[in-house]
Amino acid sequence: MKRTLLTVAGLFCATAAFADGHAKTLTVYAPDYFGSEWGPGPSIEAAFEAQCDCDLVYETGNVLPRLLLEGQNTNADVVIGLNTDVTKQARESGLLASHSADLSALTLPIEWDDDMFVPFNYSHTAFIYDNTKLDGFDSFEALLDAPDDVRVVIQDPRTSISGLALVLWVNAVYGDEAEAAWARLAPKILTVTQGWSEAYGLFTDGEADVVLSFTTSPAYHIIAEEDLTKSAAIFEEGHYFFVELAAKVAGTDNPDLADQFMAFVLTPEFQSLIPTTNWSFPAALPQDQWPAGFQELPQPRTVLFYPEDAAAELRDEAIEAWRSALSQ
């Protein structure tokens, strides 16, 4: 039985290879929003294929769970769209290789010299509000002190990366007092959603006054909708840094092509495609080359960030502070 299955599998692989013809295929695992028709995926694919004589194919979904499920047998050559919450787990899986890209072009607000993960864009967690209805908040304290009829919608840290970034943000600002801070915010929290999309939908539909999102979110409304009413509240305590990363898979069949892609990530060509497709700050492009709309976005003076070991250590405690304060 086992032999039959192996033969069948072998045949399958053989046909697949045959069907692909001579051009090499670079398989990139990416989150749904990245690979979709409305994300950065298609334009990046076209730009890379123009220089690599290869076929770039996205497989979209939950990148790290899928990579871990597949283990050493994965088809991926490159993974893109990971964030710092999962880098520790990804690193320890032994499935990723170190990159050879030159990080000197990076323009991040923090130091970055990781040998495995290459950042391609960044933003900061921020609360977005409608500036025709609210005056905004200049600090986390101001938000916590806001009247209870200001309704805030956030994402669940157990199911959403932005929700997790928020609990780490609160932890970075309030430390041991995090649970008390959550208790002050709790009456204003309209609800908690599974993912970012539901929360943002509730905000744009007018159900919530304030939504947890990113400092770059207003850029979408400014550039794509010419709508200037959405603003990010910039807090004097600082904002949590949110960076998206790419990495090369250790077991790739196309190591050269994967290296070429990793280097491509930091080129101005790739970087200039990012702002208006992934609605984030490019990781390696000087500010004067950002599109209009991005250049004028207010940026936090202080950037808060936990390296992966510290974040992993704090994570359970931070989520529990959130859970127990909001379960009262």
Binding site: Y33, S36, T60, G61, S197, E198, Y200, G201, H221
Partner: peptide
């Protein structure tokens, strides 16, 4: 489908999530 889909295989509900994920609430 979210666990399996590749390029060109999105169903309508998945497409709706993708549009929302790209800020396009009206199109969604």
């Amino acid at each position: 489908i979210t666990l399996f889909a590749g390029e060109g295989q999105a169903t309508l509900p998945l497409l709706m999530y993708r549009l929302m994920g790209a800020y396009q609430m009206d199109a969604a």
